[in-house]
Structures are given as structure tokens and as C-alpha cells.
């Protein structure tokens, strides 16, 4: 037990190599190099598994066209416009505390709520991009509901913070000038 933990996997691999005469080993290495060179002539770029493909399945037959998703403005253009309005409304809310020194509680709460919505939709976009529904449906569901839960928790925490402490902008100011 101890020995197997102490020994590194590389050492173990070396130990597993059959004891061949050196001449045979050299010959096999040589042939491996020649084969690699032969294969490499057909490849213009090296293969790097930076982003390995996710699991996939074939819907219908291979000759079927990719299904076009149902159009829905509330998931499309309305959602897009809403996202932009939220982002744009963050500009005055972000500039105001720099101009005025701090924010009053109402504006501070508004800033927190807007940032929360902006963060939530931002994280949603990330999940939609990187956890595709057609490849990893279960992971997608897990991430979406995990985000929903996290946003509820953060909303609750921000409510607590806004009602019991001095507010987000004032806190940042105090930490910044501490």
C-alpha cells in the first residue's frame, strides 16, 4: 500500500515497460518516429485538446437538417433589449456616487437591484453559451437552477445588507478610504 502511494505514476510506468534488449527498443522507437512523421505530413496543425467536444448524439438520421428552434421574442429581441436597458441604466447609477460622494438609500437599493439583474442575465448568457442544452441537458438544468438559487440568496443578502448596514456605495467608500 505504502509503496504504491510513494511511487509516482511515471516510475510505475517505467517499471511496467517490458525488459527488451536495447537494440529492439531503439528500433521500435525509430519506427514510431518514422510513423509519426508519416502521419504528420497529412496534418497542417498540431492537435491540441484545448476544448474537447462535449458528448453528442445524432437526432433522427445524419441527413436530417439541424432543427430550427421556435422563435420567441421574450427569449429573443425583448430579452436582448431588456438586457441593454438594464446595462445602460447602470451608467448614471455608477457615475452618480462618484459625482455626489455617495448615494441615498433608495438609489443605493436601486443600484443593487440593477446590478443583481445585470449579473443574473450575464451569468445566464454564460451558461447558455457554454452548457448547451442539446449536449448536456442535465448539466444545463443544474446550472440554470443553481444560478436561480444563488441569485435569490444574493438578493436576500443584499436586502439584509441594505437594511442593516450603511449601504453598498458607502461601504465601498469607507473601505476605499480606510
Amino acid at each position: 500500500m505504502m509503496a504504491s502511494i510513494a511511487r509516482s505514476s511515471l516510475l510505475r510506468q517505467v517499471a511496467l515497460v517490458p525488459k527488451l534488449p536495447i537494440a529492439t527498443r531503439l528500433a521500435s522507437q525509430q519506427s514510431a518516429i518514422v510513423n509519426a512523421a508519416r502521419v504528420a505530413t497529412f496534418h497542417t496543425t498540431a492537435r491540441r485538446d484545448l476544448l474537447p467536444p462535449l458528448p453528442q448524439r445524432v437526432e433522427g438520421t445524419v441527413n436530417d437538417a439541424a432543427p430550427v428552434p421556435e422563435t420567441s421574442p421574450s427569449h429573443g429581441s425583448y430579452h436582448w433589449t431588456f438586457d441593454r436597458l438594464v446595462a445602460a441604466s447602470l451608467i448614471p447609477l455608477t457615475v452618480a456616487p462618484f459625482a455626489a460622494g455617495s448615494l441615498n438609500p433608495t438609489l443605493d437599493a436601486l443600484l443593487c437591484a440593477t446590478i443583481l439583474i445585470h449579473s443574473h442575465t450575464g451569468f445566464q448568457n454564460i451558461i447558455i453559451d457554454y452548457v448547451p442544452k442539446y449536449r448536456t441537458p442535465r448539466a444545463r438544468k443544474l446550472f440554470v437552477w443553481g444560478l436561480n438559487a444563488a441569485t435569490v440568496v444574493v438578493g436576500l443578502a443584499l436586502y439584509e445588507f441594505e437594511t442593516t448596514d450603511v449601504g453598498v456605495t458607502e461601504t465601498i467608500k469607507r473601505i476605499w478610504t480606510a
Partner: peptide
């Protein structure tokens, strides 16, 4: 923000001090 807010919510249970005064100090 998400990490801080969640930590702030569980701070009383865990005995952490994450209110603005102690953070600034």
C-alpha cells in the same frame, strides 16, 4: 459580489464579521 453576499448572509451562523465597519477596519 455573489461570493461576498452569500458569505454575508451566513456570517452570523459562522461567526464571521463582514459588516462594513469591521471590513473597513
Amino acid at each position: 459580489l455573489y461570493v461576498f453576499a452569500t458569505a454575508y448572509l451566513v456570517a452570523p451562523l459562522a461567526g464571521w464579521h463582514l459588516e462594513s465597519a469591521s471590513l473597513a477596519a
